[in-house]
Design a binder for these strands. Structure first.
Length: 625
DNA sequence: CTGGGGTCCT
DNA sequence: AGGACCC
């Protein structure tokens, strides 16, 4: 719709192969739904205009523009697909709170299950500020990129995401902590809980669990038997509206892939041609990215009568270094070489002396390394000068980014947070191990100054809980998470919106919040929208209509509650209190992903896996083996 | 007649 | 290498 505004008022569907992957609101009014077959859609809406959406390039570019724009307001942005972003606006909220008199606070947008005019912003200062931040982000996305979308503001990513859809096209909603229970109960089934996919839902159903309350009340012990401790606790917490994962800045992509599906492919000639076609575009994208892929993977799907659904098989191999350099440089003869590599992998997958019937081929570059600086000398780790090229381009604005040559990219500097590895090092180095048992140490965060934590922790659990809950009422401040979801006007929203999507924010500091939004496409004036901000906990999630981004935080590995904390009690605590508690007993510090080990100049990137104290420090570069 | 992407965990 | 999840 953005590319062709004349389509704005017509029913529009985005088509991939035989299905309508998404549509605009006009088409939806005619009964066109999300993953509907083209034939069904045409039946419901004969005038439906179709646009082929198999090439994701423009959606990907828009998507990164949204993420970049959000990052320019608040660095902690996590993408979720192309059209959603979570933004942890905790710090922004805290700093605004300091300079804002309570009397000047207000909410903008909807408040879940409440009348906005009936809620006192002074009672939820952080969420109120979060609602304004969400509104600003949505407005920035609309005026600068022409996309509309929704936002949700809440104390964690789960809640921000769920509440973002409360008021649908182009509006925003804030979740007050006391409405969490209502929100969760409003979900029609367990499958509606983000994080509970088809497989998990099926296994839960086998246990007799269908609704959110079924899962909330199911004995954890029994759940652990089916799913293991980590998964069991996680999904049960999700059912209660508890999400301990952090908004993890996404950074540049970890992999780039291109694929095509078809009804039948059964000759080598077709296969090598398809591989060449896919590789040509993938190499081009990789070149624009500027990093060097160290690994290549080929994936196929065979026609399978049985087990129709998701049988994919893959083989991967290292990319010869001369080739990966040529890819980054944009050499022209790279294609042929890579096709050769891919065909070799293909023969590991398929015995071509027998008949075969493929329905999909995918080519993927992963293990992406920033090329960098001084030949990746380990010495660069000790240099006081920042590496020349921190992680590739600033934001890998996906394909769009102008690919930075070797020089530090001057413009778009807001790139990788942490930029250099120094900051990563500092942060991770400081983190202590998650502590599996939990509570002993200072697990209880923020006790009032006059309470000695050593004394507190030896109190009976119910006394602790009572103290904590009293406590909670005293301190009103809390982190908030906001999520926004923008639906696109062009009709693309979900899968890939044409336009983009959202923005979000969350709060950091002791408390954190996340915001998520989704944007729709469309620059048009369509519906009005709103944003809402969460109160204490602040978080937002934003989605754009077509492309979207989301910010999320990584769930920390050791994210269990201390064993003496009852999750049911915990879930009743104010969101900000929950966040504080959680952030203390897993000492979270947001960290970027580490590009790949090597040249290290890259900066901070994901590195999630560093769990313990040690993992991500320089020592790993010296490990003996 | 269910895309074309992505992520992380095991 | 596969499986789960997300959009």
């Amino acid at each position: 719709m953005i590319r062709n505004p004349s389509l704005r008022d017509l029913p529009l569907g985005i088509q991939q192969k035989y299905i309508i992957v998404t549509s605009n609101y006009v088409a939806r009014q005619h009964g066109v739904t999300k993953l509907m077959s083209v034939s069904d859609a045409k039946e419901k809406c004969p005038q439906l205009v179709l646009v082929n959406g198999e090439d994701l390039t423009c959606y990907r570019e828009m998507s990164y523009k949204v993420t970049d724009l959000l990052m320019s307001h608040c660095p902690l942005v996590e993408r979720l697909g192309f059209d959603e972003n979570f933004v942890d606006v905790t710090e922004l909220v805290e700093s605004r709170l300091k300079e804002t008199p309570l009397s000047a606070l207000s909410f903008v947008g909807h408040i879940y299950n409440q009348e906005t005019s009936a809620v006192s912003a002074k009672d939820y200062p952080r969420l109120a500020i979060g609602s304004h931040i969400a509104a600003e982000l949505r407005d920035a996305v609309h005026t600068k990129l022409g996309l509309t979308g929704c936002a949700g503001i809440a104390s964690n990513k789960l809640l921000a995401k769920l509440v973002s859809g409360a008021f649908k096209p182009n509006q925003q909603t804030t979740l007050l902590p006391e409405c969490t229970v209502t929100l969760m109960h409003s979900l029609s089934g367990l499958r509606r809980v983000p994080g509970v996919g088809p497989r998990t839902a099926q296994r839960l159903q086998a246990l007799g669990l269908h609704s959110v309350s079924d899962l909330q009340l199911f004995p954890l012990v029994d759940l652990v038997k089916e799913f293991g401790e980590a998964h069991a606790k996680r999904i049960q917490n999700l059912a209660r509206g508890i999400d301990v994962s952090m908004v993890t800045p996404t950074g540049p992509p970890q992999s780039l892939s291109d694929e095509d599906s078809f009804k039948k492919m059964s000759t080598m000639a077709e296969v090598s041609q398809k591989i060449e076609e896919l590789l040509a575009s993938l190499i081009d994208r990789m070149h624009k990215d500027g990093r060097q892929p160290m690994t290549f993977r080929l994936t196929i799907r065979r026609l399978s009568t049985a087990n129709k659904w998701f049988n994919r098989e893959s083989r991967q191999c290292p990319i010869p270094s001369f080739l990966s350099q040529k890819i980054a440089l944009g050499s022209s003869d790279v294609l042929t070489h890579l096709v050769t590599v891919a065909v070799k992998l293909f023969h590991k997958l398929v015995d071509t002396s027998e008949a075969f019937h493929l329905t999909l081929i995918n080519v993927c570059f992963c293990n992406l390394q920033s090329r960098s600086v001084s030949r990746g000398s380990i010495a660069s780790f000790f240099s006081h000068k920042p590496p020349q090229k921190p992680q590739s381009s600033s934001r890998h604005t996906g394909p769009p980014s102008p690919r930075q040559p070797i020089s530090p990219t001057p413009t778009q500097s807001h790139g990788r947070r942490g930029g250099s590895d120094y900051s990563v090092e500092e942060r991770t180095g400081a983190s202590r191990s998650p502590k599996t048992s939990g509570l002993e140490e200072g697990a209880f965060p923020r006790l009032p100054p006059d309470v000695d934590p050593d004394v507190f922790k030896v109190l009976p659990q119910h006394i602790q809980e009572e103290l904590l809950s009293n406590f909670q009422t005293e301190r009103s401040g809390i982190p908030s998470v906001l999520t926004t979801d923008l639906e696109d006007q062009t009709g693309f929203s979900h899968i890939f919106p044409e336009p983009l999507k959202r923005a979000s924010q969350s709060v950091r500091s002791e408390e954190r919040g996340a915001v998520c939004r989704e944007y729709d496409a469309g620059s048009s004036r369509e519906d009005g929208n709103e944003f809402s901000v969460p109160q204490d906990p602040v978080g937002m999630r934003v989605e754009h209509d077509n492309s979207s981004k989301s910010v999320t935080s990584n769930s920390v590995s050791g994210a269990d509650f201390p064993h003496n904390v009852d999750p049911c009690v915990f879930s009743q605590l104010p969101a900000d209190m929950q966040r504080e508690l959680l952030s203390e007993w897993r000492q979270q510090k947001p960290i970027f992903k580490m590009p790949s080990r090597p040249s290290g100049t890259g900066g901070a990137s994901r590195d999630k896996k560093t769990k313990g104290p040690q993992t991500n420090n320089l020592l790993k570069y010296f490990k003996p083996s």
